[in-house]
Design a protein around this nucleic acid. Structure first.
Lengths: 221, 221, 221, 221
DNA sequence: GATGAATGAGTGTTCATTCAT
DNA sequence: TATGAATGAACACTCATTCAT
């Protein structure tokens, strides 16, 4: 564990320490004790700046997501071919997933609500609805938590969907009424590639190339 | 909570109770106390039949996995076209994932070892090696646990890989040196579809159809 | 662990298994489960022949003590010099203690009553009285348990005391009003020698020789 | 049960409560629940100041041992005859043993390792080696625990050995190549006197006098 | 006679959160 | 602003004993 520079504010030091710890241990195994030790501060200070453990984690996730989402949007808005955009998107996404593996797993699993019986449904306009399959219904606060983590993940997929839809409107892709599904399918497939590390020492550029190729042309010989 | 029928043995009642609880709460949030309450038995009885919580969970996972894997293998060995096999595989897999969402999440996350700094690598012969990126190395026992859950997940992907490889050898698919990767990518994409997007109305047959189509022919217009 | 011969009765097999287990693990760490596994019998059978764990242990202790005590008494009654008797006593005692180290520790500690606040006092006529320093007074049953283990240990010391008293009456030892104390002191010193294993690969004969010599002549130069 | 004064820190109150409980119940029968009840605090507080139950016990043992060992060393270094030193040593030791009977029993038994198959051997330079006669070998941590309790007991015996060796070098005692053994024998004999025979009326000074006398001059008439 | 399935009270340990200073 | 002492609910696991067959 790297100790913090003395010049940073306590608030920043805590967030940096949280990054170290959450990135390794995930959410449940991460302890405030470890974080404050690295940040060289006290527990009270954490609760001064961050409402609780969950809020600290969310702040970290936001901080990490923002520049990544920005990059994705730059790719979306870039002046290049559809396949170029897709390739760039895939490369960025593989890098980000690879760098933030455990944190993404937390988003997918710890905060998916599945283990509380909750599920998020999205309609075609992108509005969310939380339903409860069993157990207690989420409180307003709990629903808000679900929603905000879902939005993070969804924001990545939405960019991909826009890229795909643009591909359709440019006439490069076949149309399909549920481009959202294809975006999710492609995104999920890439994510799982990294989660499962099917390819040690993965060359992101190469993977992006072949994935784009097969996405476009299919596997039929 | 559904109470057990009086006719079942304690061992069976415990496993059924475990299924209810683990399927809802996941691994960490599931408690023995809840399980024994549903099974209407004592803690000692659980430990009589199952070595510990993890072993109880694994027994459940095996029980669920066996018939599913069997179905996949039947599909693999069936006399039909490649695309028919692929379609059937996808349908079974979507059903299974949908029915066992939380349990699969546990396999992916709680027992992936990622949050302990561990990672499983497979060589081309399908042998596993556990490496430790940080923290303590897994004990022999911990390594065995990692390995056995990984094998469950891997067993699903291997069948898909065999189907794809057969498609290649039949001349229906383009060859690629890493069919393992494409199997993982397709599998992961489907898994994520369920993890993330699943709504009650999902028509597995329809999804399988379009996925097979695009897998074969690509999205290029 | 050696498995039992098939010819022995269940009752005997259990006692032999108990000997293996108690001799290694002591009382608390020994489990009935381990004992019945070695004895290849069921738990109910143990409770058929022996009232409970404590009673099983006591039966074992008695079985081991009887021939030992017999040997000590033979030495006491033997026709030889005082120092010869003392030497033989010491050798037997060191052997027995060495062979039954853990069981003797159980007598001294687990069943001394000290950790329940109880203490045994003996008057000059050798009568026992149990007093309670704190906590609940022992029930009649508990008092009986204390008493019986104390008697085992005391039986060894009494023989030594008789040997010493005979030494006095033969004019070989100085008289002292509390020969019981000297017996206890000598006995305890030897016991601790083995408990602490001051001398690896102890030669009992040699130790007995030097102990007798210094017991008789003292350490003064 | 005596309640704590309100002025003491929680850390101190816990240690005092631990003293009450461990001194009565020994190690295994002592429970954290009883300790925190007496200390009027929460379980977390115990674990804040003491790593675990064993560490709490060890802290208590150290706290009790330090001033005692100091007294023994003062006696060792005092300007007086050999027999004076020996007498003072015996008196202190009887007092300490009498005051800390159950705790010393814990050192001898619970932490001797004998019931795990472990044994500590000391070479002539006083270095320790742990050997395993059966069962699992101790982990590094377990070995460290064995070692530290052994050192406590050994520290008492070493002082006695130094006193005896000085007696030899002053020409008051016969030489013997294993003064360590005699120290252990004398120490053990005294310990057992208290473990076994102690009645409230024991006059330590008197006992010390007669033990010194017989130790020097022997029992031969 | 012999069995072994069933039990549940009991215990050490963890960790997010609070709040007085 | 910053602290860290104090808390207690929660949880996995053990094992002597019982009793119906």
């Amino acid at each position: 564990m790297v100790n913090m520079e003395q010049t940073l504010s306590k608030e920043e030091r805590i967030l940096l320490a949280a990054e170290q710890v959450f990135s390794r241990k995930g959410y449940t195994l991460a302890t405030l004790d470890e974080i404050i030790k690295i940040a060289d501060t006290g527990k009270g200070t954490v609760y001064k700046y961050y409402k609780n453990k969950e809020n600290l984690f969310y702040t970290l996730v936001q901080k990490k997501n923002e520049p990544f989402l920005e990059k994705l949007k730059v790719i979306e808005d870039s002046e290049q071919s559809f396949s170029g955009k897709l390739r760039d998107y895939i490369i960025e996404m593989l890098k980000f997933t690879s760098d933030n593996l455990v944190i993404l797993q937390v988003l997918f699993f710890d905060f998916s609500g599945a283990n509380r019986g909750w599920q998020i449904l999205t309609d075609k306009d992108g509005n969310f609805k939380v339903i409860s399959r069993w157990g207690n219904k989420p409180t307003a606060e709990e629903e808000e938590i679900l929603r905000k983590y879902f939005e993070i993940l969804h924001s990545h997929i939405i960019v991909l969907r826009y890229i795909l839809e643009e591909g359709v409107s440019r006439g490069e892709l076949k149309a399909h009424e549920q481009m959202n599904m294809w975006a999710g399918h492609l995104y999920g497939g890439l994510e799982m590639l990294v989660f499962h590390d099917m390819d040690e020492g993965m060359d992101f550029g190469h993977v992006a190339d072949v994935v784009v190729d097969r996405f476009m042309n299919g596997h039929k010989s």
